[in-house]
């Protein structure tokens, strides 16, 4: 029987991305009559193991030296073996940096084809088709993958979790893969504190762009974000200018976010930025240029110089609480 494989990271736990990957996998398996296998790399906590068990028909947890923390060569070698053992026809991953780093290489090792940043995956005529934004979000393409397995990284947080109701608990198998020696070693791993949840999981985001003109106004935006219990983000222009850390960048090549409210301040809304925020429930912009492209994506917006707005807005939201 053919199998759809969902690849999850033990370290990440059952976050929104893992739920999205499992949801995409379950629906694809059901529509093609395939079984669903979840492969978890690294020790899984109870929430992740039982969450995967509730959705997948079979769960494989791969642990051991070399797999507790991410290493591209070790993870790739382990996944390659585990997917071969599964006789996978489709392998799904999230769109975190680690998944993006190894997905194409995994496809190559499995003799398959990869495509990424998928908003939809479906089977048609025995082949897998992947829908994704191209040309910086100005167009949408459907890519047909010619080889099997299809290795696809999906915009996991924008994909509905599976409806696990009524499904039995899948089997759990624990394995310790043999890993080849590698000269690739992670010497240092720094996680920049953003004072709370990961940006990708944030429910409210306050984001600043080129129009702020320098790093100083981000201090004001931070006060607004604090009152709103929001995470801070920025456009590529602000990150490239060195005003804020690169990890704040939202867009095609930054984080893909999906908050309830995305407040864009002095961001013009280049299509590559829109690609990172398109899954937001409500987008609101403050920009002095009424013709700024960002307004085409807003539910509501204010045409005004941000300098006149941020301070008073912060005060009003504080006193309204």
């Amino acid at each position: 029987m053919s199998e759809v494989v969902c690849t999850l990271w033990g370290r990440a736990g059952l976050d929104r991305a893992a739920q999205g990957v499992l949801g995409a996998g379950r629906r694809l398996a059901d529509s093609t009559g395939a079984a669903l296998r979840a492969i978890i790399v690294g020790t899984a906590d109870d929430a992740l193991a039982s969450g995967a068990q509730a959705v997948a028909d079979r769960v494989v947890v791969a642990t051991g030296p070399g797999l507790e923390d991410y290493n591209p060569e070790s993870y790739l070698a382990a996944l390659s073996d585990l997917c071969k053992a599964a006789s996978a026809t489709v392998v799904l991953l999230g769109n975190d940096t680690y998944a993006q780093e190894i997905a194409a290489r995994l496809a190559h090792r499995l003799g398959g084809s990869a495509a990424g940043d998928a908003v939809a995956v479906h089977a048609e005529g025995g082949k897998v088709r992947v829908t994704r934004g191209v040309y910086g979000g100005k167009a949408t393409a459907v890519i047909e993958l010619e080889k099997s397995p299809a290795v696809v990284w999906v915009r996991a947080r924008a994909i509905e979790p599976a409806d696990a109701a009524g499904r039995g608990a899948g089997e759990v198998e624990r394995v310790t893969p043999e890993l080849p020696a590698t000269g690739v070693k992670v010497l240092e791993r720094q996680e920049e504190s953003k004072g709370g949840a990961r940006l990708e999981d944030a429910q409210v985001i306050v984001s600043g762009g080129r129009g702020l003109g320098g790093p100083e106004p981000f201090t004001e935006l931070q006060k607004l974000a604090d009152v709103m219990h929001a995470q801070m983000a920025a456009s590529r222009a602000a990150c490239d200018a060195g005003w804020v850390p690169a990890s704040w960048q939202v867009g095609q090549t930054g984080k893909k976010v999906a908050p309830q409210l995305y407040l864009a301040i002095a961001i013009s809304g280049a299509s590559q930025h829109i690609m990172g925020i398109a899954d937001s429930k409500v987008i609101c912009a403050i920009n002095r240029d009424a013709d700024a492209p960002i307004f085409k994506h807003c539910t509501f917006g204010l045409v005004e110089d941000y300098q006149k707005v941020i301070g008073p807005l912060t005060e009003r939201l504080r006193s309204a609480k």
Binding site: K185, V186, R189, Q190, R198, A246, S247
Partner: peptide, 11 residues
């Protein structure tokens, strides 16, 4: 760069 920050890798 990683999602959370950065890594230094010897290779």
């Amino acid at each position: 760069q990683t999602d959370a920050g950065f890594e230094v890798i010897e290779a």
